[in-house]
Design a protein around this nucleic acid. Sequence first.
DNA 1: TGTACATCAGTGAACGCGCGTTCACTGATGTAC
DNA 2: TGTACATCAGTGAACGCGCGTTCACTGATGTAC
Lengths: 203, 203
Amino acid sequence: MRRGYHHGNLKEALIEAALALIAEKGPGGLTFADAARAAGVSPAAPYRHFRDREALLADVAQRGFRLLGEALTKAWQDGRPDPTQALHRVGRAYLGFARGEPAYYAAMFESGVDIGADPALRSVAEAAFGAVRTAVEAVVATLPPGAQPPVLMMTLHIWSQAHGIASLFGRADRARRPIPMSPEDLLEAAVLIYLRGLRAPKA
Amino acid sequence: MRRGYHHGNLKEALIEAALALIAEKGPGGLTFADAARAAGVSPAAPYRHFRDREALLADVAQRGFRLLGEALTKAWQDGRPDPTQALHRVGRAYLGFARGEPAYYAAMFESGVDIGADPALRSVAEAAFGAVRTAVEAVVATLPPGAQPPVLMMTLHIWSQAHGIASLFGRADRARRPIPMSPEDLLEAAVLIYLRGLRAPKA
DNA sequence: TGTACATCAGTGAACGCGCGTTCACTGATGTAC
DNA sequence: TGTACATCAGTGAACGCGCGTTCACTGATGTAC
C-alpha cells in the first residue's frame, strides 16, 4: 500500500484506521496519534488532511450516514412488492447497519459529534432520514384517507423505534440485555402493531 | 463542606464532580484527576474510594438507574386513575429524566460502561426496567383476552421507543434535529397508536 | 475519664507515558515553457 | 523532449501538558481498657 515517501492514499488510510480503533476501543479511544501510527505514518502527517481529531470523527460519521442512507434506499427497492413489506425491509436494514457497522454507528451516534454543526454532515444525515421518510410516505398513501397520519410524525416514530432497539439490543460489541427474540423480530412486531393502530378507528 | 484534613464525604463529592464534568464535557471528558481537583482533594485521594475511572463511572451509572427507576415508579402511582393514563405518565417520566439529568443519562447509556458486568449495576438497571414492566402488565390486563401481547415484548417496545426518542430528540445539551412537536407528544402519540393496534383485530 | 494504639482518609511529591501540536525540513509530483 | 520551478505530502525531532499511578507519609478518628 505504502509506496515511498508519499503515502498516496493517507486520508482513506486514516479513516480506515479510525474505524478499526473505534471498533476496538470505542469512539473515546480514538486518538490522532494512534490513527497515524496505524496508517504507518508520522504523527504530524494527519494534519495535512484533518484539522483535528474532531474533524476526523466527523468525516467518519459522514461516511457512516452516507452508507446508512444507501443501505436504507437499497432495502426500500422502490417499495416492491408493496410498501409495507418494503418498510419492514428498511427497518431490518437499519438494524443490520447497526450490527454490521458498529464503528460507524458509534461515530454517528455515540461519539459526541455535533451533527447540526457541520453542513455536509447534516446533509447526509438528512438524506438518510429522507430514505425512511420516502418509505413512510408510500405506506401512508396506502392507508384510507381518514387514517393517514402526518408523514413526519410517523417517520420519527419508526426511526426512533428502530434506533432505540438498535441502541439497546442491536449490537454485539457489548454485553447487552439478552432478549428472547431477535432485534429484527422485535422491530417488525412493533411496526406491525403500529400500522394496525393506524388503520383502526380511533377510540 | 471541607472540614480539615479529612474530607468527610469525599465519595459523594467525587460523584457530584463527575456529574458536573460529564455534563460539561461528555462522559469521555471525565478524568480521575479532574474529579479530584473539583472535589478539592489531592489526585491520589480518589483511589481510597474507587479502583479507577471506570469504577467511578459505574457508580454514577448505578445511581442514575436507581433514580430513573424511582422516577418511573413514582410516575406510575399504582396505575391511577387508570393504567393507560399512568403508562403515558411513565413515558413522560422517562423523557423527563433524560432531559433533566443528561449527565446521568450519558453515564448510563453513552459512557461505555458494561451494564452486564457489574452485578449491582445490572440489578438496578433491571429494577428500572421492572418499573416499566409493571406498568405494561397492568395495561395488558385491561385488554380483551385475545388481544393481550406478551408482556416482555410490549415492555421492550415501549422502553426502546422512549429510549430512541430520548436519545435522538430528547436532550438539550446538543443541537439535535429540531422537530415540530415535543418529545413527550411524540412518544404519547406513538404509544396511543400502538395501543390501538393491540386492540384492533389482526389483519 | 484518660491514655495508648490501630485504623483510616488524604497528602504531596514523584515518575513514566502518550498525546497534541509546531517547525524547519525534504522527497516526490506536477506543470509551464 | 527536457528542464526549471512551484507545490504538495510526509518527516522527525522537539516541546509542553496533563493524566494515571505509586509511595512513604501524616493528620484525624475511633476504640479497648
